[in-house]
Amino acid sequence: MAEIVAVIASTHHPFYYRASTATGADRPPFADEWVAKIERFRETLTRARPDVLVMVGSDHFHQLWLDNMPQFLVGKAPFYDANWYNEEREFGLPRYLLQGQEDLSAHLLRQGLDAGFDLAFSNELRIDHSITCPIITLRPEADLPIVPVYTNIFAPPLPQPKRFVDLGRAIREIVESWPSEQRVAIIGTGHLSLELGGPRQFGPHGPDPEFDRKAVEWIASGDLEGCLAEVTLESLHSPGNATHGFMDFMLMMGVAGEGRKADHVDSLDLFHTMEAYFTWYPNGVPQ
C-alpha cells in the first residue's frame, strides 16, 4: 500500500512569489526572513522524498462559480493548467502545467463516495493559487504529479467544520489504502484570521491576532477536540470575513490525526495576515 510520508498544512500567501523574487528597492523588508522560513519549511517536504502530492485548496471563484458550486471536488485529469489572468495581474504569479495522478484520483473518488462523501469531480480543472502557492513554496520544481482536492470555504452555505475534519480523516485512510508503492505527501492550505474586502483588511497584522495564537496552538498540538469545541460556521465570522478558510487547516488536522503534535511549526507575523507552517511525519521523522 501507499505510504503517507508527510502531512503539511500551510497558509497560502499569494504575495510570497513577488516578495521572494523582488530585488533592490522593490524587495520588502520582511522578504529575507520570509524566504528563510519558507526554505526551512520546504526542506521538511524534500526530506520526505514524496512521489505524489495530494493537494487540498479552495478555488477563489476561478473555475467554480455560483451557478454550479460543489462543496468538495476532486480533480481527475492527466494534467492541470494553473493560475489565472487575475492572479497574474494582482500577484504576478507564473503559469504552470502540473501532471495529474489519475489512478489516485479515481481511488479517492470511489472510496470517498463509498465512505459517504458525495464528492464532485472534474476532468478539466485549471487550478489556482490555493494549490500553486504551496507548489511555489514547497516544491518550486513543480515536478511531481498531483491530485487536487477543492473545498468550498467561500460561497455560503458551507459545510460544517466537522465535515472538513471528517473528510481529512477519510482522505488519510483512503490514501493509505491505495494499492501502490508510491510515497504520498498530503498538503493543504488555508488561512488563519483574514479579512478581504472588509473594514479590517490590510492592517499591520492579521485582523485577529488572538484567534491566530489559538489556531496555531490547536494545529501544532493536534487539538481537534478543543478546536471543534470553539469553531463554528458562525464563530468564524468574528476573526475576519475570510476566516472560513481556516476549515482547510481543520481538514488537515483530520489528516494528521487527533492529538498528533506537528514535527515542524513556524509562523510569521505579516501585515494583513499571519503566515503559519506545519509538517507532520506519520511514520517518524525521515532520516
Binding site: F154, A155, G197
Partner: peptide, 12 residues
C-alpha cells in the same frame, strides 16, 4: 455583494 469579488475587481 461578495467582498472578495468586489475587492479583486476594484484593485484591478
Amino acid at each position: 455583494a461578495h467582498p472578495f469579488l468586489t475587492l479583486t475587481l476594484f484593485i484591478a
